[in-house]
Design a protein around this nucleic acid. Sequence first.
DNA 1: CATGAATGAGCGTTCATTCAT
DNA 2: GATGAATGAACGCTCATTCAT
Lengths: 215, 215, 215, 215
Amino acid sequence: MIGGARVDSKCEVKSSVKDRSLIEVRREQLICGAVKLFKEKGFHRTTTREIAQQAGFSIGTLYEYIRTKEDVLFLICDNIYNEVHRRLFTATTAQGTVEEIELAIYRYFTLIDDMSDEFVVMYQESKTLSKEALQYVLKKEMEMVALFEKLLQACVDSGTLRIGRKEVGLAAHHIIVQGQMWAFRRWALYGQYTIADYIQVQTDQFFRGVIGDRS
Amino acid sequence: MIGGARVDSKCEVKSSVKDRSLIEVRREQLICGAVKLFKEKGFHRTTTREIAQQAGFSIGTLYEYIRTKEDVLFLICDNIYNEVHRRLFTATTAQGTVEEIELAIYRYFTLIDDMSDEFVVMYQESKTLSKEALQYVLKKEMEMVALFEKLLQACVDSGTLRIGRKEVGLAAHHIIVQGQMWAFRRWALYGQYTIADYIQVQTDQFFRGVIGDRS
Amino acid sequence: MIGGARVDSKCEVKSSVKDRSLIEVRREQLICGAVKLFKEKGFHRTTTREIAQQAGFSIGTLYEYIRTKEDVLFLICDNIYNEVHRRLFTATTAQGTVEEIELAIYRYFTLIDDMSDEFVVMYQESKTLSKEALQYVLKKEMEMVALFEKLLQACVDSGTLRIGRKEVGLAAHHIIVQGQMWAFRRWALYGQYTIADYIQVQTDQFFRGVIGDRS
Amino acid sequence: MIGGARVDSKCEVKSSVKDRSLIEVRREQLICGAVKLFKEKGFHRTTTREIAQQAGFSIGTLYEYIRTKEDVLFLICDNIYNEVHRRLFTATTAQGTVEEIELAIYRYFTLIDDMSDEFVVMYQESKTLSKEALQYVLKKEMEMVALFEKLLQACVDSGTLRIGRKEVGLAAHHIIVQGQMWAFRRWALYGQYTIADYIQVQTDQFFRGVIGDRS
DNA sequence: CATGAATGAGCGTTCATTCAT
DNA sequence: GATGAATGAACGCTCATTCAT
C-alpha cells in the first residue's frame, strides 16, 4: 500500500449532535443532496434552505450538523478523498511494472466515473473553500499525484520506462488530469465513448503516444 | 486558414454609450480589472462595486457599459475567443504534417500562457453564464476541438498517424485539456517547468507516449 | 344577497411562513402600516424598509410575508374588497324599492368613511399593480358597479324609477364615484360636512336633483 | 367673466435658456411627450431620459428647460389650468340662469374630453408635487369649484334653484367630480357613451335626479 | 444652446445564520 | 434533537442630476 494519511482530525466538521451514527446518516443525506444541487446550480446559487430541503430536514436541523455553508462543500471534498483512499491507495503496490500503473489508472478512472458529479463539484468550487480547507484539499490532490509519480518512478528505476526525472512529474499530473477530463467533458464524450473505451484509449496513448508503434 | 466564424453580433453586450471607441477602451479596463478580481475571489464573491473600482470608474459608469454582472463574465470569455481566433485559427493550415500540429500546439499553449488568468476564470465560472451565453462559449470551445481534429485527421489521411477515427476525437480533446492544465496547475508546475519545457515534453509525450522509442 | 364571488385563491400572495394565523396577524400589521405610509408619501416614495419598520418588524421578516413590494399594495386592495364583500354584498337584496338603494348607499358610503385612507391609496396607486393584479381589482370594481346597477334596474322594472337603460349604468357609476369623492375630497369637505350630512345630501340630490321638488 | 387670477410668477419653472419663444416650443414638446409617458407608466416609472427622448431632445437639453423632474409634472398641471382659464373662466357670467350652468358644464366637460390624458395624469400624480406646487394646484382646483359655486349661488339667489347654502358647495364639487369621472372611467364608459351623451345625461340627472319629473 | 458620459445615493431583494419553542 | 420565524448585512442595479466639451 502507498501513502495517504487518514483525515486530519483538526479538519473535521464540528457538529452539535452527539450521536455519532446519526451524524453519519445525516451527513450522507446531506452530501448526496448537496452534490446534486451544486452540480446543477453551483455552490453560490444554492441556498442553505435548498440544501436542507433536498437532504430531507429543516434549516434548523441542517445547522445542527454543520457550522457554515462552506462545511457542506468541505464534507463533499472529504468524502471524495475517503473514497480515493479506500479504492486507490489501499492495495496499490509499486514494484515497477506497467501493469501496476494500468491497474491504478483503471481504478482511478473508474472511481471518477462512479463519482463524477462529486469530482466536478469539488474541482469547480474548491476555490470557495477557506484557506485552511483549501490547503487540505490541495494536499490530498498532491498525494494523488505523488501516488502516480511513485508508480512511474518505480518503472523508471526498473528500466521499464525511459523518461527523465522531470517528465515523471508531468506524466503523473497528466494522468490525474485525464481522469478529470472524463468528468468534465462528459457533454462532449458521453455517447461516443464508454468508460471502458476511454480507459483503454487513454492508457494506450499515454504509454505509446499517437504515433507509437502498434505492431 | 481553418474554420472559426467571427463573433456573432447577436451575442454582443449592449451598452448605452454611443462612442464605439470609448466602449472599446472602457471594456478593456473592465476586463482587465475583472479578471484580476475573479481570479482572486471568484465571480460570486466579487461585487459590482469592486469591479467598477478596479476598472477605475464608478458603479454608475460600469452600468453604462454592461447590462448585468454576468455581462462582465461574458466579455471576458468573448475576449478570449477573439484572441484564439486571431492567434490560432488565422493562418493555421491542414496539409497533414506533424509540424503543423506542433505549431498549433505551440500557438495554443503560448496563448494560454499569456492569458492564463483569463482562461482559468472562464473555465471556472462559465457555468454561471446564462444558457444562451453558455451555448456560445461551448460552441467556441467545440470549434477549438474541431481545429485539432482537422489537423489530426489530415495526418491520418496522409498516413503520418495511424490512429483510429475514434481516437482522433479523443486526441483533440486531449490537446485542449493539456493546454488548460498549464493554466490550472500553475501552483504545482510553475517553478519546475517553463512554458517552453512544458510544450516540448507534452508534445513529445503526445506523439510518442511515455514508453515511445526515443532513439 | 347579491353577486360578488369570493377572493380568487390564485390571486393570493405567497408567503414562506407556514403558520396561517401568524400570517393573518402579520399582514394586518403590514396593511395598517403601509396604508399610513402610502397615504402620506405615496407608494413609490415609501421604501420597503419603512414599511417593515412601520409594521413593527425587520426588512427580512417583511419578505417572509410578501414576495415583492407590489404585493403590499395588492394586499391593501384585496383587504378592501374583502370588507366590501362582507359589509355591502352580503345581505343586500334587490326587490325594487328606493329604500334598498338608500341602504346600500348608506352602507357603501359608511364603509368608505371607515376605510377612506385605504380607498384613497387603492385608487391612487392601483395603476402601479401588475397587469394581472390590476385586472383583479378592476373586476372587483365592476362588481360594485354591477351591484348598484342591479338595484337600480330592479327599481326601473318595478316602475319606481323611470330612467332609460343607458342611464342606469351611468347612475351606478355615479354612486360609486360619489363614494370616492368623500374619500378624495376630504381636504375640502371635512369640517363642513359629517358623513351623515354627506350621505343625506348626496342621496337626496341623486334621487331628486338640485331642482327637484322638495315639497 | 368670473375669478381666476393669472399664473403666479413665483411658481414659474426656471429655465437657463433665454429665448422665450424657444422655451415655449420646447415645453410644448415636453408636455406632450411627458403626458403620454406618465399616462402609460406613471410619473415614477418614467425616467427623465425617456421624457427627453420622447420630446425629441437629449437629456442635457431637457435640463436646460427644467430644474427637476417634478417641474415636468408641474408644467403639465400649469398647462391644464391655463386652458381651464382660457376656455372656462373667460366669458362665463353669473346672472342666475340654468342655461349659464349648463353652458359651463358643457365647456368644462368638453375641455376634459379634449385633455383627458392631461387631467388623469394631474389627478393621479399631483400628490408627488412639492408642498408649494401642490398648494398652487389645489388653489386652482378650488377656483374651479368656486366658479360653479358662484353660478349655483346666483341661481339660488334668483330663486331658480331651491337648495340650501350647504348643498351649494357640495353640488359644485359634484360637477367637478363628474367631469373627472369622464376622464377616469373611460375604460368603463367609452364605447357606451359619447361625450355628448354623457353631458346630456349627467346634466339632466344633476338638475332633476333619477326620479325627477321628466314631463 | 446642445450633447451625453459620468456620478453615487438609494432602492428592492436575498439568504446565511440564530435561537426561542 | 428538531423546527422555522426572525434578523440585517450586503448585493445588483437604477436613475436624477451635473458638467466638460
